[in-house]
């Protein structure tokens, strides 16, 4: 048994060196596939970061009648903070709202003049509510509409913003869904390419496989060297891909950070390096071994 395994490994090893061209082609194609899968893994992180940063920009505001006191509003703020779906409630006083408006529109003389003409602060005090999940805004809005302090509320701008919130929600959900479909498709296509490359290489050795059968080699003796080669291809391709991604994340990570300061690809890559290498290794070995097995199968029938 041990002698047989040694012989299988020796034949596999010999094959690698005697047909270096085919080996290089296979490793090249496998590196492409593994890189694609690694990119999907890294892009998933980047896209979920982007999606959550878009979702964070969504909020609703509750405006209070002019006669409500600050204490009443602060009480409501406290009540709202207790709701588990609510992530954050910010109080904006009448004065603050006016200052925000002036700050935002100080360049616009028409608006500033109309504000002067009104002669008083026309803004209402409000609470700015941010939910942990965009689907929860409906619930928060219902809670406000039906609450005991409803008499203090002038308006909840959820109904106004509803279409925008829903659009963002469906956009991010679609983005995630189409991302998954697209990745699965790409992975499938690249698997096909690797499988066909290995199949073509084994097809070249078809006659040898048949001769081996005719001189009495058992199927495992014939498959063995190919499986060994498949494993070596997988390990080699995984190592090359890891090197490529180490360089890419190190080089481009800082440039991405300029665009999105909170997205640090290099740190993310380093902290997940073992997971990434495991994914690469499993993909490589899996591809190499499964493709070889499938490609040899039909030549073993003689």
């Amino acid at each position: 048994m041990l002698v047989s395994i040694k012989r299988i490994i020796r034949w596999g090893w010999q094959g690698l060196f005697r047909d270096g061209g085919a080996a290089t082609a296979t490793v090249f194609i496998m590196v492409l596939t593994i890189s694609l899968i690694t990119s999907i893994f890294l892009l998933k992180e980047a896209s979920s970061f982007l999606i959550s940063s878009i979702q964070e920009k969504v909020d609703i505001s509750v405006y209070f009648k002019e006669n409500s006191t600050e204490q009443e509003i602060l009480n409501i703020q406290e009540e709202l903070s207790k709701i588990p779906e609510v992530q954050n409630v910010k109080y904006v006083s009448q004065e603050q709202a006016l200052q925000d408006f002036i700050q935002r529109h100080k360049e616009d003389p028409v608006l500033m003049r109309s504000l002067e003409e009104v002669g008083r602060n026309p803004f209402l005090a409000s609470l700015n509510i941010r939910a942990s999940d965009p689907t929860q805004y409906e619930a928060v809005s219902d809670f406000l509409d039906n609450s005991l302090f409803g008499y203090l509320i002038e308006k909840v701008d959820y109904h106004q913003r509803k279409p925008v919130i829903e659009k963002i929600f469906s956009l991010t959900a679609n983005l995630e869904k189409s991302g998954i479909v697209f990745s699965v498709l790409l992975v499938f296509l690249s698997f096909l390419v690797v499988f066909n490359t290995i199949r073509l290489i084994i097809m070249k050795g078809q006659e040898e496989i048949q001769i081996q059968r005719l001189v009495g080699a058992s199927n495992w003796f014939i498959r063995g060297p190919f499986l060994f080669q498949g494993t070596i291809f997988g390990i080699l391709s995984a190592l090359i891909s890891l090197l490529i991604f180490t360089f890419v994340c190190w080089f481009f990570g800082s440039q991405i950070s300029i665009l999105f300061p909170e997205l640090d690809m290099w740190t993310y890559f380093l902290s997940n390096i073992w997971t990434i290498f495991l994914i690469q290794l499993l993909t490589g070995i899996g591809l190499g071994v499964v493709s070889s097995l499938m490609a040899i199968r039909k030549y073993l029938e003689i």
Partner: peptide
């Protein structure tokens, strides 16, 4: 098929 190698090992072709 898996037993064929045993036959072929008894034949030199």
């Amino acid at each position: 098929p898996e037993k064929l190698p045993e036959l072929r090992r008894r034949i030199g072709s």
